[in-house]
């Protein structure tokens, strides 16, 4: 018992500490090796001009960043990525909200609609894009067939630089909004019925009810949906990779930052420059997240 007294921490507390450390150890070790160290490695690599597979690295200091700032293609990619986000996020969230509100009303078959709207979410983007590329086909695609039947001009969906990003955004909206709708519908279903009954008695119209009762109560979920959709959109890659190759005339107007990162790192084997591009993406996402967290305090209502 003499030795016991020298331990300043009571045995029970020690016991809890040891269990705590033991339980988080695998995850923390994994995050350290797979994520934390790689962040520093990427930052370090961005200071090098690299040959094949990291061999023959040559220190260039901030050379990659100077090149990045002068590279028009990088700024096109920044603009394309932001434009994609601006097209996909508001439209997919608004559409998700409208459908969720309709399904939360007195309609029949809510669960069938929910199941159908969610289907694109379970399809691999590679398969989805192949299908859309076929629908978008300028000569034989279903969409242009319908347009010409309606007496409209066919559109070069995947090769017209003015249209390419819109075509990609449509696929993005089609793929994501079912997921957002499921989240919003779940949140709507949690609003107690008496809230609506109370506002009925007060003589509120459906429209007033929507903005006074419904919207404030779903703002936490709405915020979650906005944050996750924005982060995902900023990382858009698969759809553009599958639809627009580097020789496509619409490439400059559709290439995203992640696509550019992929091309530089794994096609042109310049991992140093690729790293600099992904650091730029990190900075952009950090800035956007900072403003979102600031805005959260203004419009999100936590009960």
């Amino acid at each position: 018992m003499a030795g016991y007294k020298r331990i300043r921490v009571p045995r029970n507390t020690w016991n809890m500490w040891l269990w705590g450390w033991f339980l988080v150890a695998p995850t923390m070790l994994g995050l350290l090796i797979l994520n934390i160290i790689p962040i520093f490695q990427t930052l370090y690599l961005s200071l090098f001009k690299s040959g094949a597979f990291g061999r023959g690295n040559q220190y260039v200091g901030i050379g990659n960043y100077e090149r990045l700032i002068a590279d028009a293609q990088v700024w096109h990619a920044v603009a394309n990525t932001l434009l994609y986000t601006v097209l996909v996020v508001p439209l997919s969230v608004a559409l998700a909200m409208i459908i969720a509100v309709l399904l939360n009303g007195k309609v029949k078959g809510t669960s069938i609609f929910r199941t159908i709207y969610f289907i694109p979410m379970i399809a691999a983007p590679a398969a989805v894009t192949m299908v859309w590329r076929w629908l978008y086909n300028p000569q034989f695609g279903l969409i242009n067939y319908v347009l010409t039947q309606l007496g409209l001009d066919p559109v070069r969906w995947t090769t017209d630089p003015q249209v390419g990003l819109i075509s990609i955004s449509l696929i993005g909206i089609w793929s994501i909004f079912g997921y957002n709708m499921v989240l919003l519908l779940a949140s709507l279903q949690e609003i107690p019925r008496d809230f609506y009954e109370a506002s009925d008695i007060d003589g509120a119209s459906k429209m007033q009810q929507f903005f006074i009762v419904t919207v404030p109560l779903v703002t936490p979920t709405l915020f979650f949906v906005f944050v996750t959709t924005i982060i995902q959109s900023m990382q858009v890659f698969d759809v553009i990779y599958m639809m627009i190759d580097v020789t496509n005339p619409a490439y400059e107007r559709t290439v995203s930052l992640v696509y550019l990162f992929y091309n530089n790192s794994f096609r042109y084997m310049d991992k140093g420059y690729g790293s600099a591009i992904v650091v730029l993406l990190l900075v952009l996402i950090m800035i956007i997240t900072y403003f979102q967290l600031k805005a959260e305090k203004k419009w999100v209502n936590y009960m």
Binding site: I39, T42, I231, Q235, F261, V278, L282, I285
Partner: peptide, 10 residues
Amino acid sequence: MVPTQIFIIP
């Protein structure tokens, strides 16, 4: 909060 592409090369 970090984009996953930053881990990929390492």
